[in-house]
Amino acid sequence: GKTYEVPFYQTVDGGELQYDCVLPYEKWMGRAPVDLSLLCEREGCCKVEPLPGIFLCSDVKLRPPYVPSVQPVALIPSVAERLAEVEKVLFPMAEYEPYSDSMTVWRDRGALKVYFPLDKSDLRRDYRNNDVTLGRIVDILRQIYADDRSDVGKILIVGFASPEGPLGRNTRLAGARAEVLKEYVNSYLELPDSLYEVANGGEAWGELRDRVEESTFDCRDEMLDIIDHTADLGRREWLLRRLDGGEPFKDLLRSVFSDQRNSGYMRVYYTSEPDYNAIKINRAQGMIAEGDFDGAVSLLRPIREDKRCLNTLATAYYRLGDKATALDLFKQAAAMGDKVAIQNLENIENDY
């Protein structure tokens, strides 16, 4: 349904006229085998004479021009995000809030706890599981700092003491235990003071109540009633000591208070940059789909050191008609194991 005209050239008798004519591929051409003939005519000043036609070929099966494939790139989590999946001590900075008495940090099952002997604030690596815990604390922080896309936003350390003994002494002990843990971490990493929030949780009555409620103590309900309805902490402890001849309090000493003689609980809040390169690559693929090949090249060229962008960048160049640059980039991507680039390169080199 279309006519393609050959530009006029003057020739002398017996001369030759050579020309190329390129017909764009259209969808109908691929539906069935195509025959190709050239109809010829000679046009003078006064008349048009038909000439014998030229039969070129028959039963030609045409395929559309090859369009390289691209594949969306998955966003790679930062080190902090990856660690947070297994280290429950890590929280995104967006969830940070200053410590308050209502914060039930002891319920963080993944919290890192460092234990102290009775009535002591000396940090001993050889006490209970302290050596492993202290090593984990430092290792987590070091991994975050080593990643360009991760950072520490805040380190919250809450010190506690068990409710046994004088309130004033326990409060001072809880604060000292939290401070000594901060000093330990800082001896390895030398972090600015602004990153730390060292809070004194005092006597760990909230945790004690949770432990009693989960227990099977004979006087469980009576203990909970004392804890819930006695505001004076000194009297609260006195009543627990006197309950049922002191046996329930001995149970607390054996099974609960020993675990509360710790520095408290540690939360590390982190900041994390998105995987901007992956976001740009996926956006460039959308631009290619919309025909904005120049825009895709401009977006990806600054990040071409990221091997994930090579196949998409090559595709943009290929669609622009710069086959040489495209092939070079496809080869680089294929050499790095990009399966989509390997298939693209194979199709192009085999004259798809």
Rank of each mutant, 00 (worst) to 15 (best):
P192I: 02
E41R: 15
E95L: 12
D210K: 05
I155Y: 01
G291I: 03
F160H: 07
K280P: 00
A204S: 11
R267P: 06
G153A: 10
E273M: 12
G286Y: 06
G264H: 10
C219W: 01
M29V: 04
S69T: 03
V180I: 15
V114S: 07
A334R: 02
K47Y: 10
E85S: 09
D193T: 09
K323Q: 12
I279E: 15
E247I: 08
Y184E: 03
R267A: 13
I155F: 03
P166Y: 12
L51S: 09
D13I: 12
D210H: 05
F160S: 06
T104K: 15
G153C: 04
Y127R: 11
I226E: 01
G30T: 08
L240A: 03
V6I: 15
G206R: 09
P7C: 05
G286I: 03
S150N: 04
Q343S: 10
V138G: 11
M266H: 01
D148S: 11
E85W: 01
D148W: 01
M93P: 00
V340D: 06
P65C: 10
W28L: 11
P77N: 02
L167K: 14
Y25K: 09
G245A: 11
V340N: 04
R172N: 07
E207V: 00
R109F: 04
P192C: 08
E43M: 12
S263I: 02
Q71S: 14
R319F: 07
P98K: 12
F293M: 10
P302V: 02
C46P: 03
L39R: 13
I54C: 11
L62G: 13
M93Q: 12
G286P: 06
V138W: 02
A314R: 10
Y25Q: 08
K27P: 10
D294P: 00
A334C: 07
Y145M: 14
N186Y: 04
F91Y: 12
A231M: 08
A324L: 13
F217A: 11
K88V: 00
V114D: 08
R136F: 01
N262W: 02
P117T: 06
L320K: 15
L224C: 06
C45S: 14
V138D: 00
